[in-house]
């Protein structure tokens, strides 16, 4: 098996209201059955707007959220494959070392009171209960070097660093456990434009150097298409289109992917939508989540959920749309 992660039918919903006035049946369907395969060494890009489920998908992949239905199968470093589940503590601990999550905003994901040295080592120190301290510190110091920080930064605190440098600290922290897969959730969104490129380049460098696989999540389609080998486009908790990055840029097929490309600031095309709203699915869907905004909508789109199917021979492209012809 060449697949590092195999995700099938991943489903997750949240209760909309909590507390005394909760309406029991009001739920937000964040993920409505997502399939996804990640090959070893590959970067998989995920795009979607807020509410599309991309962050929920990422958090479920590292089990910060438990999924309700579906499976996540992981091919471990020792060659054994197992299903990632909350109850399986032995395997989960190992999984969490090999699969690391990097957050969007380093100013809130790094404890301001801790020094860089503590930030890098505290997680591992607790897990190993203090054993092999010297080895851990050596690995963490190496990590600092890998992300382009100085050894003298070890005793400084996050507030003494700029946003870009803080994101470097967050990456060094992820590297300490020698991960095989990095899940990068909007890691450049909070950064200044002139610093963004530096972090993207660092990610490419780390990927090369350590043979990392990556899930790269962002709302900027051009950045995702640049970084990823394959890209999945999420809307309303469902995969609208998935294709090799180049193919998707050359010829987006799903109407939502087209809208995303046309809306990007660089496209220069002014919006034709006057006031369409995004939709947060609070009921189980009966049709395509994009149907209310879709320029090509027909009756069938509202009553029948389109399933992802292959379009084009051996193109590796999947499209979930009733209006896109299978070639």
């Amino acid at each position: 098996m060449n697949e590092l992660l195999e995700v099938t039918n991943l489903t997750k919903s949240f209760q909309l209201h909590a507390g005394l006035f909760a309406q029991a049946d009001q739920r937000v369907y964040a993920l409505g059955g997502v399939d996804l395969t990640l090959r070893t060494g590959e970067t998989y890009g995920l795009v979607g707007e807020s509410g599309s489920g991309k962050t929920t998908l990422a958090r479920t992949l590292v089990q910060l959220e438990a999924h309700e239905r579906g499976t996540i199968r992981y091919l471990s470093s020792d060659g054994s494959a197992w299903e990632v589940r909350r109850g399986d503590r032995r395997n989960l601990e190992r999984y969490r070392q090999e699969v690391r999550y990097v957050f969007q905003d380093p100013s809130s994901s790094l404890d301001p009171r801790m020094t860089v040295g503590d930030l890098l080592t505290i997680g591992a120190r607790q897990r190993t209960r203090g054993k092999d301290r010297a080895g851990l510190v050596a690995r963490a110091r190496e990590g600092l070097d890998h992300v382009g920080l100085r050894a003298s930064d070890w005793d400084r605190r996050p507030s003494e660093f700029s946003g870009g440098q803080r994101q470097r600290i967050a990456l060094a922290r992820a590297l300490v456990t020698r991960p095989r897969l990095l899940i990068c959730d909007e890691v450049v969104s909070a950064l200044d434009v002139s610093v963004r490129g530096q972090i993207l380049e660092l990610l490419l460098d780390l990927k090369n150097r350590f043979g990392l696989s990556m899930v790269f999540i962002a709302h900027d389609l051009d950045v995702v298409a640049y970084m990823a080998d394959r890209v999945g486009v999420l809307y309303g908790g469902r995969m609208m289109e998935e294709a090799p990055s180049r193919l998707l840029v050359e010829k987006p097929l799903h109407p939502y992917t087209k809208l995303l490309f046309d809306s990007a600031p660089g496209a220069g095309i002014r919006s034709r939508e006057t006031s369409a709203q995004k939709l947060t699915p609070t009921r189980a869907l009966t049709g395509c989540p994009f149907a209310p905004r879709c320029p090509l909508v027909i009756d069938r789109c509202r009553t029948e959920i389109p399933l992802p199917r292959a379009v084009g021979p051996q193109s590796g492209r999947l499209v979930a749309c009733h209006r896109v012809e299978a070639e």
Binding site: E49, E273, S275, A276
Partner: peptide, 10 residues
């Protein structure tokens, strides 16, 4: 979001 951004600019 980008699609909404485009609407507001328009």
């Amino acid at each position: 979001d980008v699609t909404i951004q485009a609407q507001i600019l328009a």
